[in-house]
Amino acid sequence: MSIEIRNVSKHFGAFQALNDINLDIHSGELVALLGPSGCGKTTLLRIIAGLETPDSGNIAFHGEDVSGHDVRDRNVGFVFQHYALFRHMTVFDNVAFGLRMKPRRERPSEQIIADKVHELLAMVQLDWLADRYPEQLSGGQRQRIALARALAVEPKILLLDEPFGALDAKVRKELRRWLARLHEEINLTSVFVTHDQEEAMEVADRIVVMNKGVIEQIGAPGEVYEHPASDFVYHFLGDSNRLHLEGGHILFRPHEVLLSREAVAEYHGAEVRDIRPLGAITRVTLKVDGQNELIEAEVVKDHDTLVGLERGERLFIKPKASA
């Protein structure tokens, strides 16, 4: 089911959270709303869900205007950053909640509900936790239960608000790969909010970069990374360096750099401030002559220039972009 967002604006008091947002999300797509905190991405997600009302503009699901529909009639699955599991219910009852709340005519029998719940728990690989309470689970487990609970009512759209934000780095990586695979299997139109560009790049089909209540750029991960529409997008999607030249400066990513131990024409002399092996790559922090802003260069760990390199030595660098 597609989502069409038309001219949506929202403010809280004097703060303009969203300013005339237009966005189309295609059926079956996994879209990331990416931006710094306070950029309006969570507000937009909550407006799609119906948890907030926009000041102006409207939301349509598959062409049907749902702006006037109540939250419970929109049939969206929603996953909260802090899980929002019902603390006094077991995992089983949490997942069964949506089915049990259906009007009597539509409500399946307890046997069908039980089968469905176990099927969902098996899908999130936590069937063995059915009788536990949320407080007895780890963060990653809680979030998978929250996802199972949201999927139980067979929503047409899945919305996730910083779903991995409260988890530690390792669990976060596992879970987002798992989510990407899950999305491939069930192919549900999904929107997730994140402030982590790596997460957005890894999981999403398309990324919507937001800043200060407006959309800066919409595009596939490779597209927004390679062809950023603004300086903001460039900075937000990855680490960046600034090299001052006569009459201006150029921006380049840490890996877009050529290094040499010998002075070469067009290369800039620099002093090595720090050397950090980070696994497959090594990061070298450099102070280029004539500028105070430090530059970070990332090269493969067996790069020729790194052999025997020590702090305080001289290196010569050239951004690849200016070739």
């Binding site: 948890l51 939250v71 419970r72 699955g77 909260f80 019902f86 603390r87 909640f97 709340m101 949201a150």
Partner: peptide
């Protein structure tokens, strides 16, 4: 309010939300 919001998103009406989520808490 998140548990209440979650209940509403899962289709609970006001009374169900109060009875099954708010009151037990």
């Amino acid at each position: 309010t998140q548990e209440e919001e979650a209940a509403r998103l899962l289709g609970a009406n006001g009374w169900q939300m109060f009875w099954h989520v708010t009151l037990p808490n």
